[in-house]
Design a protein around this nucleic acid. Structure first.
Lengths: 341, 341
DNA sequence: TTGTAGGCGTTATCAG
DNA sequence: CTGATAACGCCTACAA
């Protein structure tokens, strides 16, 4: 078992000083030709690699990004992760990913754990519980310490930091407008958790479209659903509200509702049209395929990582108050067979 | 901007020595009551937290686990990740996740990057390219340095380390047997990449079942598919081989093939039955729902993390050659509507 | 051209 | 009871 070798080991072996070794390995001009060659050869032979931890301690940066998301078994987050990881990697950063599991406490614990020197900055999507409680002290704590933070998707106005979001309101508006444009009159909104700022925005867009299209706004057509197991709610809803279109704030709900509707004999899209947020695998492979709203997770991820790393690496210079920005990414409506073209 | 406070800061402020502060914070018996209280109060007030990096350097462990997987936009890996993260977290570890993107080079780079002190051990699933090349030097390098490694799912016999896998052969056998039991005679296998050891095992189980059931083994019924875009291959296959059942080594292929078959007018499961590996969302929400093989990713993840952490934390004591183990997890056939009950 | 010393933040050992 | 010192591995300003 060849343990890892250190500068000190090389120095001892070659009978030179540690700093000579250090400089030689960096090809410093200060060091003589032969010493350099000797050291470099030895280092290569024993496969010397500087210890990341020691460098981190010295340089006061870790080249690690902390990512905190509510869930990973979720197409959207998964693509964001991939976007972040890819970009971060290209800049020499690694990603430490923590799942808050939709729990406020876990979010706080994870954050504190990482904030103690393990990472150079955070990228996160707030958990639903956090949004519900509106308690952002853990975020404040971190930003006050000067640790850069980028919020995406599920964000809050209460914290000043960089943000990346999609134009939820606008795309919901367009989705509804599209369905109205194909003759739909009773368009329902299936939502989950009104406290989520994204859901609020989507609801707003939904409402605005209804008004703009001269359609009646019926409170009964806005359905608040618990995360899972909601046949008992959707089934009767489908029967008693003579709806002809549905916009769902997430993919699973959309698919689930569509399957239920089909089972009840509704034709799709003729009787009921469906559009769902998140253009994931489910939408693509559903029967009929689901018209969906692409949130461009990869892009969001890489933009978030870019913003964060810029912030991290520019921290040294600037001393003035930073000016934060919110990047809005255009969502895209992917038209498939669950809507009338 | 309240920068992070250090022992030194506290010591200076309170006019005591650094070591006194350190001990006081650890509630050491050595320190006097009032000094302790004074220090602790001050520390709390200024929200002192020890710097993880410094502790890592000192203790020579990071409490970080390196995870390297080919892809994250993938139900199975996603559940494994969740299992690892959850267990690791409960033991005070964080997960640094890297995506090899099915590329050998990236796998190597990521590994080297993390091996230089950033992590205490690795959990990984080999990329397809790595399996294809059969080049495991990067793994060898790491294990020779004494860094614990746990391989899961896509593993290799060439490396001695702990492993977690499912009984791929057996469950493929059972899946085929089940379909044969319901009268199916021409059972096809849709595979992707014969170099994958999991696919090899699944093929073996498939073949064994055929023989055991007295069915003809027809090479033409084993279809090797490229990762995506394979209508051109599946479509003609469906038409010309009069098959009545399909076992697919992954979910997407299964769903895709099933959709194609339906579009061609085959009734499912009467005309053709389908079973797919990975019991993900797609299987659950497909129409008809897909009978699937659950790989229990969460469980695999938490077992892998458990094995790894035990290995990491026992390293200190034992000096003798470690004895590695391979944990085989039973896969489960989840029966749904794409097969005849 | 090479080496010494100090420091990054913490802990542990040993003296006072 | 408290403090000085060394060490973890590396880097760098400054001596020699």
């Amino acid at each position: 078992m060849r343990k890892k070798i250190t500068l000190k080991d090389i120095a001892r072996e070659l009978e030179v000083s540690i700093s000579t070794v250090s400089k030689a390995l960096k090809n410093s001009e200060e060091i003589g030709r032969d010493t350099k060659e000797k050291v470099q050869a030895f280092a290569k032979l024993y496969n010397y690699r500087p210890n990341n931890i020691a460098i981190s301690l010295k340089n006061k940066h870790t080249k690690n990004i902390g990512l905190i998301i509510p869930d990973i078994v979720h197409y959207f987050f998964t693509t964001v992760f991939r976007g972040i990881e890819k970009y971060a990697n290209s800049r020499g950063y690694n990603v430490i990913a923590c799942l808050s599991d939709a729990s406020f406490d876990k979010e706080v614990i994870n954050m504190e754990m990482l904030a103690n020197g393990s990472i150079d900055g955070f990228i996160m999507a707030l958990s639903s519980e956090t949004q519900e409680k509106s308690d952002y002290n853990h975020l404040r704590e971190v930003t006050e310490q000067g640790i850069p933070l980028v919020l995406f998707d599920s964000t809050t106005d209460e914290i000043e930091c960089d943000k990346v979001v999609i134009d939820d309101e606008q795309i919901a508006y367009e989705a509804v407008k599209k369905m109205a444009g194909s003759g739909k009159k009773r368009i329902a909104l299936f939502s989950t958790g009104a406290h989520y700022n994204v859901n609020k925005a989507r609801t707003k867009g939904y409402l605005r479209a209804l008004v703009d299209c001269g359609l009646e706004v019926d409170e009964k057509l806005i359905l608040e659903l618990p995360p899972e197991k909601n046949i008992d709610i959707i089934d009767p809803f489908l029967e008693s509200n003579s709806i002809d279109a549905v916009l769902a704030v997430n993919e699973i709900t959309a698919i689930h509702a569509m399957n239920l509707a089909r089972k009840k004999g509704f034709r799709i899209p003729e009787d009921i049209s469906f559009i769902g947020f998140t253009d994931g695998l489910l939408s693509k492979y559903a029967q009929p395929s689901l018209t969906a709203i692409a949130q461009h997770g990869d892009q969001m991820g890489s933009i978030a990582a870019h913003m964060l790393i810029e912030r991290i690496e520019s921290e040294n210079e600037e001393e003035e108050e930073p000016v934060f920005q919110t990047k809005v990414i255009e969502a895209t409506l992917i038209e498939r067979d669950s809507t009338i073209n």
